[in-house]
Simulated assay, not measured.
Amino acid sequence: MKYRTVFDIIGPVMIGPSSSHTAGAARIGRTARTIFGRIPKQIMITLYGSFAKTYRGHGTDIALVGGLLDFDTYDERMPQSLKMAAEAGIHVRFVESEERTEHPNTARIHLSDERGKLEVVGISIGGGKVEIVELNGFELKLSGNAPTLLVLHKDQFGAVADVATILAKHQINIGYMQVARKEKGLEALMSIETDQSLSEELLQEIRQKSGMYAVTLLNN
């Protein structure tokens, strides 16, 4: 295994006790919060594998909710996240599943409010690193190690070309791209990791193209 930096070895700055069960969980929650775009009113979190067995003792519940409140891994408010969510009128429910998953540290997060719903599946792969492997039923693989553009759009001719053209105009290089759809002609999802950061101007250009439903940027 290769390490890119010393922080891959010693782990992230965090509120403990575990980089996998707390720091990783917090990052899964915070990524879901970023995609949702706001603080949810209802949170249902289904836990699998070791997450389901040890989440209370390892603080995984606290970390996931802290991330959903937009707390970073080292935020001193993290231990109070469940209390703060309750005080804010957010309904939080945890479900322990016995279903077997590919990775033992897996969480399925369902967020909702009067404006909409979101379902995200994330895994904590160790050292505070995470992957988002499902978004509203779309399979994907987000590492969070690079700026990532998520574009939910109508499955139609020219949609991918429109986004690629705008990125090229702004001299943005694509490091990794994935396109998925559930059914021909309905919704599709583009996941694009880039080598450069993306401006709000660029995001607005994409939003103005025909058939674009939602455009979200995840920064590492």
Rank of each mutant, 00 (worst) to 15 (best):
G24Y: 01
T106H: 13
T34M: 07
F138V: 01
L150A: 09
Q204W: 01
A159C: 09
A159N: 10
S197C: 11
T216M: 07
T216Y: 13
G211C: 08
K129Y: 13
T73G: 03
P40N: 11
A168Q: 10
A159M: 13
M14S: 07
A159R: 15
E87I: 00
T54D: 11
N145G: 03
E99Y: 11
L47Q: 14
E131D: 10
M78Q: 04
L203C: 11
E96F: 05
L82T: 06
I43C: 10
I123F: 04
S191Q: 13
V92R: 12
E102C: 03
Q196H: 12
E205R: 07
E200P: 03
D8P: 05
V133W: 04
M212G: 08
A88T: 07
L203K: 13
G175E: 13
T106W: 13
P12I: 00
T165S: 14
V133T: 15
T148N: 10
M84K: 13
T31N: 02
K83W: 00
R115Y: 14
M14V: 01
R27S: 01
I206L: 09
R27W: 02
K129C: 00
I132C: 04
S191T: 15
T216I: 10
L142R: 00
L186M: 10
E134F: 09
S124Y: 06
R115F: 14
Q171P: 01
K154T: 09
D8E: 14
M84S: 06
I10L: 13
